[in-house]
Design a protein around this nucleic acid. Structure first.
Lengths: 238, 238
DNA sequence: ATCTGATATCTGTGATCACACTTGCATCAG
DNA sequence: CTGATGCAAGTGTGATCACAGATATCAGAT
């Protein structure tokens, strides 16, 4: 990077940008991560003061963070004003799946058209990591969940649709708690095994720039994972 | 509605529910309305204290409200920590339109299948109101915008997809500022004239439960409104 | 033993204050 | 007149306090 003004190049160029992150933003991402990986169970109540104490801050940043999460439906405020992780119903789960198929399906198809070689390399790496972790004797559920997410989002990112990407994050934030909570408590082996297959097909389709095939592979992935949860009958009907 | 317990029916049933709305929620909806109807121009900065003063409250409720709006991308926080209404780029506008066609198109098609007679009556009423206001000598831009929104959302509501409905609200919140700001400043006659036609077709399709035709009418509506803005070349390329 | 009642604790909400950072404007040197 | 410099006003962020409503706990009466 050349110096901005006519100023001579100096050691200043090696200075790294300081990240003046807000506490509020930090709390937000921490809670978000806990939710999306299923470490907070659906229906669980969140007391602002408890969260603040656990993170060693005051109420304020927590309030901001929770307000943001509430806007994304990642948590819900009850009539009593208490906030909790939403309980997933069968109907809501199915609707979320329908929307995911539309949105993520479209992005996957676009990714096949727009992915750069760098994108593909990144996706390949993540697929390899996911497969490797999966084939271990005792796979780490948390890591598996994270790698699965990173793989999918690497694909969506390649579609060059930032707005859609943001919306998909919101969808995962809503569906993540039940999906990953269930997978975390039960043996996730069976469902993840098929996931590897779908991911392989998806990657192959992207590499030959076959949009419809990529979408098909993704759809299979989403549908089978959804069927797994629906089949376990843990979701209330209403 | 029957009494909940074995208690005898009494005048209590006529009591109306107390609305214990939070100030924060009120601020949120006020700002939301201002944004969606284009009464705050894109790029405009929002000072928390100004908003608080204008609404006669303290900073606190405003902070909560803005945090929620930021989570929905209805406002953006700059690196300087100032918040402003996002400036729309051509690319973002087109992406939003693509997503709208998917999401709103799907909901419209579902509405054709699931709309109850009450839904259809409500939609008919709103269509009549919109048409009436439109045919006036000097139509009220604000009212026109509001009626247009209510008509569309009455349709989406009939699809019985609450999650999608919420997402669509988010989309309108993002696209509303430019769309309605532009329509408000310029003569909206030309673009609204065609809107009436599309709405008429949409309603007719719903009444004969023709999903694909309803989707087509909606698509035409969205595309033509979008083309109107894009054609005016007011959006920066990047 | 069961229900009713009051009380103490805990909840989110809103206001106020303190602070660090940014921005704008006036001042002064060239 | 043009430029940089310094001060003042304004900004969002975070902490703390005050308070009303909800919840849980426990005593007493039937």
């Amino acid at each position: 990077m050349p110096p901005v003004n006519g100023a001579p190049a100096s050691g200043l160029a090696s200075l790294e940008r300081i990240d003046r992150e807000t506490v509020s933003g930090r709390v937000y991402r921490d809670l978000r991560e806990l939710l999306i990986s299923g470490e907070i169970s659906p229906g669980e109540k969140l007391a602002l003061r408890s969260v603040a104490a656990a993170l060693g801050t005051s109420l304020m940043p927590v309030r901001d963070a929770v307000a943001r999460l509430a806007a994304e439906q990642a948590v819900e405020v009850m009539p009593n004003r208490t906030v909790r992780v939403p309980v997933m119903t069968r109907g809501r789960f199915e609707e979320l799946r329908t929307i995911r198929l539309m949105l993520e399906g479209h992005c996957t198809e676009m990714a096949a058209a727009h992915a750069t070689p760098q994108d593909l390399t990144r996706i390949r790496e993540l697929h390899a990591d996911f497969t490797a972790e999966h084939d271990m004797d005792d796979p780490d559920a948390g890591r598996l969940i994270r790698l699965n997410k990173e793989f999918h989002f690497a694909v969506y990112k390649a579609s060059r649709m930032p707005v859609a990407l943001q919306m998909i994050e919101g969808l995962w934030l809503q569906i993540g708690p039940v999906l990953n909570f269930d997978l975390r408590t039960k043996s996730e082996r069976l469902s993840r095994r098929v996931a590897v297959g779908h991911h392989t097909e998806l990657l192959a389709a992207l590499e030959r720039r076959d949009g419809p095939a990529a979408r098909k592979a993704l759809s299979d992935d989403i549908v089978s994972a959804g069927d797994f949860i629906l089949g376990r009958n843990v979701l209330p009907v209403t």
